[in-house]
């Protein structure tokens, strides 16, 4: 679905934000881009909908080179939710915000209404339909930004730091929504350094540092590699950090969820009990 072929991007200031990045993301995958501040995560995301075009190399979305497509064309395939949701609102009501881009994309009015309804309902924003976007809380604004993107049903949804400023309940809700979008077959890409959130979501993790991809694999493997993570200012999630302290006792250190950790420890203690009896 997405292919970066040896992509380098240099900002006009001379900063090389992406350095020879090659990666493929398949249709329906759930991916977390992780890495320190300034690792290149946001630059990566801006290449998905053509806001930035590679200085060298190529980005392909759905088989097409982004250099041959406009942002408007790409946006139909890839919806991007940026970190500062506030920046994108400018209309008097929540409903109009969602309808705006749909009308721009040329949908007929009855389709616009249906999609607005669906999208507000999905993001649990129906009750705020007639409210000004600026009166929403931080978490609600994030959901509105996502509702706007969802309304035109892009195949790929990319979110830049979706958990920043969100409390634990909002994160829980966000996690469920991401899972559901992914289950519906969409490709979902999030950039984040929220390890606890990623540990619960268990996506494929692409780890970036200083503009390069330094690791790529299942969350269980990446998030349990303390040395690798600390090289890009990330800490192990608490479950992994705890289990790695107990590795010498024979417990499984490659575990990131509470349930697995508990199962592993309980099994280990049972085993111990047996050997003692025997």
């Amino acid at each position: 679905m997405i292919k970066f072929d040896n992509v380098t991007y240099v900002y006009p200031t001379g900063v090389k934000a992406l350095n020879s990045v090659s990666v493929e993301i398949g249709r329906g995958e759930l991916v977390a881009l992780m890495g320190e501040n300034g690792a290149g995560k946001t630059t990566f995301i801006k290449h998905l909908n053509g806001l930035l075009k590679p200085t060298s190399g190529n980005v392909y979305v759905d088989g097409k080179d982004t250099k041959t497509l406009s942002v408007a064309q790409l946006s139909r395939i890839v919806g991007v939710v940026f970190q500062n949701a506030d920046d994108m609102f400018f209309l008097p009501t929540v409903e109009e915000e969602v309808a705006f881009s749909l009308r721009n994309l040329g949908f007929s009015e009855d389709v616009v209404q249906r999609r607005v309804d669906w999208s507000l309902k999905f993001m649990e924003l129906e009750e705020y339909r007639n409210r000004s976007p600026f009166l929403l809380s931080g978490g609600e604004k994030k959901r509105l930004a996502l509702a706007i993107i969802l309304a035109w049903n892009p195949q790929v949804i990319a979110m830049d730091e979706p958990t920043v400023g969100q409390d634990s309940m909002q994160k829980e809700k966000l996690k469920e929504m991401i899972k559901q979008l992914n289950l519906q077959g969409r490709t979902v890409i999030i950039s984040t350094h929220d390890v606890e959130f990623v540990a619960e979501l268990k996506p494929r993790v692409i780890l970036m540092s200083k503009g390069r991809i330094i690791a790529d694999g299942k969350a269980e493997f990446i998030l349990t590699d303390g040395e690798l993570l600390s090289s890009c200012s990330i800490l192990m999630p608490q479950v992994a950090a705890t289990m790695s302290r107990l590795a010498d006792l024979g417990f499984n250190a490659k575990v990131i969820s509470v349930e697995e950790a508990v199962r592993n420890i309980v099994e280990g203690l049972r085993g111990l009990e047996h050997t003692r009896r025997a």
Partner: peptide
Amino acid sequence: GVPVPKVVSMAKGVNRHFKVFNEIPLSSE
């Protein structure tokens, strides 16, 4: 919706099977 450290949930889970923790831990250590 108070966030709870993961070690607290782990310890509670383990305690349901083996009475390991008299005092629920607040850190990995």
